[in-house]
Nucleic acid binder design. Structure first.
Lengths: 210, 210
DNA sequence: GAGCTAACCTAGTGCACACTAGGTTAGCCT
DNA sequence: AGGCTAACCTAGTGTGCACTAGGTTAGCTC
């Protein structure tokens, strides 16, 4: 009795995973990329609080301890994922717009921006659904601040002299309106994908044209 | 040793609360109202997931078991609070607007709407910060649907014949823009109270005038 | 082919939270 | 005054989560 195997044998475990691809070992960078992709999907769809580390690890094909060899904590993983996607969006704005806005470049940027949303719907949810206050909110605010400064700078240079942008507060409110329209449409669109990008962009541009 | 009091005496407990008002017993409706007020504040400020039942009960001056004599569960409490505030906002729209929009009544409504936000900042956070998907999101969607239908109906009656509102999707996108502007400004404003209501309303009206 | 590193695992720990069982007492009613 | 109801409490239970200790093995290097 006592001599019968007391722990599950290796062969048994391997048999269990026979139906799934035979569990390969990945290099650290590749595994890290899969973890970030899984985190984007799950945090985007379920929110920071509900997306558990176990679930993210499972979606990345591993278990929680392996995830902790790549990221020191859940907030750190969240920050890394936010950083990467916000940087992509900032690049979109920067490559198409100089110091101030011109009508043509704005249309270009908005279209490119919605292209990114179209190709990364879970990232859009992750970035634009504001997290509940707490740990996650502080990180989100810190990371998104850089993007906010970028757009605020462009708005300042463009709108100086116009009536509604005469004070810092009005400038910030203009930014709030801009963000509200774009993020609102983006979050609506990712749940209504049959609508074409052109139509969403048209509504956005019409709402933003004063 | 063993004979020394093993449980805290009643008098000792009463002495502890001597600094705070001497713990009155309230009637059920009054206590219920305080629980709802505490829930509005805490869920608004911290979000559904982070605001614990213990914290809400403490803010209402009681302990968790008493709260459960008034509300059967945390989701039920959340729904009750949402219902009450959404109903207030619907009343604001309904008393000032008939079947379709006229420029003057819209300005009136928007001003009254922001008055409510001004007087109930925590309610604004509770209503307009979309919760992370999960239990809370389903309830929020269900409760807010009635308000959405109300505004969508008014929009339909008003905009029929205009170009951008020609399809159901465009109508819904118009609603998304409207909501994005109002909610975005409201959430920004409750964190920047020194700005006067008139200025916020002015920005909102300018953004919504096509 | 032997050894080593690092990718991966199982099996926990501790904590915070929603919710409950069962007892105590304030304060009204007669 | 004495009794009764309902408002309130303490002290739990169970669950789910972030995070970890310690061991196993794939697969590269020599």
């Amino acid at each position: 009795m006592a001599s019968v195997s007391t722990s599950k044998s290796t062969s048994e475990r391997r048999r269990l995973s026979a139906s799934t691809p035979p569990r390969r070992r990945l290099s650290a960078p590749e595994r890290r990329a899969r973890i970030e992709a899984a985190a984007t999907t799950l945090i985007g769809q379920r929110g920071y609080g509900v997306a558990s580390i176990d679930a993210i690890a499972a979606a990345a094909g591993i278990t929680a301890p392996v995830l902790y060899e790549h990221f020191p904590s859940k907030p750190a993983l969240y920050e890394a994922v936010l950083q990467s996607h916000f940087a992509n969006l900032r690049a979109i704005w920067r490559t198409r717009i100089g110091d101030r806005l011109a009508a043509s470049s704005v249309a270009d940027s908005v279209d490119a921006w919605f292209s990114y949303v179209e190709e990364n719907p879970d990232a859009a949810r992750l970035l634009f659904r504001e997290p509940a206050p707490g740990e996650a909110a502080a990180i989100h605010r810190a990371v998104s601040a850089e993007s906010r400064e970028l757009v605020l700078g462009v708005l300042t240079a463009t709108l100086e002299g116009r009536r509604l942008a005469s004070t810092p507060e009005n400038l910030e409110m203009t930014w709030v309106v801009l963000r509200g329209v774009l993020q609102g449409l983006a979050l609506w669109w990712v749940d209504h994908p049959p609508v074409s990008r052109d139509r969403v962009v048209a509504v956005a541009m019409s709402a933003l044209a004063h």
